[in-house]
Amino acid sequence: MRALCCIPSTPSEATIKGLYSRSLKPVYRLLLVALLSFVLMFVDHRTDQLKQVRWVVSHAVAPLHYVAHLPTASLNWGEQQTKSRRQLINENASMSRQLLVLQQRVQKLAVLEAENARLRQLLNSAAELETKVSTAQIIGIDPDPSRQEVVVNKGTNEKAYVGQAVLDAKGLIGQVVEVGSSFARVLLITDSSHALSVQINRNGVRAILAGTGQVDKLRLLYVPTTADVQEGDLLVSTGLDQRYPPGYPVAKVVAVHVEPGDPYMTVEAMPTAEIDKVSHVLMVAQEEGEE
């Protein structure tokens, strides 16, 4: 009896307890709970009824996300604090150079935007929607390796909403699928259940870009073998999916493979955003999308 666990209780005590203190036998409890679980699963999966419940319970678990992020955050902080003077000066210099280049581009942009609006008016098409951008920090990654999701630190308090597009400096990352008061869950474009409408920047050919579950791989679906797709083509969002704002870069085509006899070709693409490396993201709010 070397592995007696914990506080020993005599068998008779257990038996008596089992007979009297339990109102329900474990089997019936299990059946009850199983029934409850099935109902919950059905309701949660098929309807939006439980969104409110989730929202309330998420208050209890949100602090865990923040605490789980602490080690990473404190490491980053330590790194910031121990940077040498020379490093900071170098960083500063390179940033001001970058700023200068960007400012120069912005100068042109204002003119172009005005011109674009005028041309759109001439064409009688709707003006592009104004977009508001706010930054957020990634505080958690989905621990389930079969899902590609992250948690960011902006919630309904900061006007985040379900369906909001999330991007980094280089391209689209994903969309918000669940919001709490101070956090939001973002489904990444690389998740295998995710797809969005894109077009090739070079010639405007449209296609559907789907995730594969791998962090650096996306796939273009249903591209006819006659379509003009080349390696290195930039794919940008079209906005036709009514979720993402149009015109943001999403991915670059890395491989095109035509199998003789197949009606469609296999096109692989890599996200332009550094999805597995970013720590800060931008959340784009469309005026129209807010409910």
Partner: peptide, 9 residues
């Protein structure tokens, strides 16, 4: 709730 899974799984 913690993992963002469908409730009940």
């Amino acid at each position: 709730v913690l993992l963002g899974q469908v409730l009940g799984v």
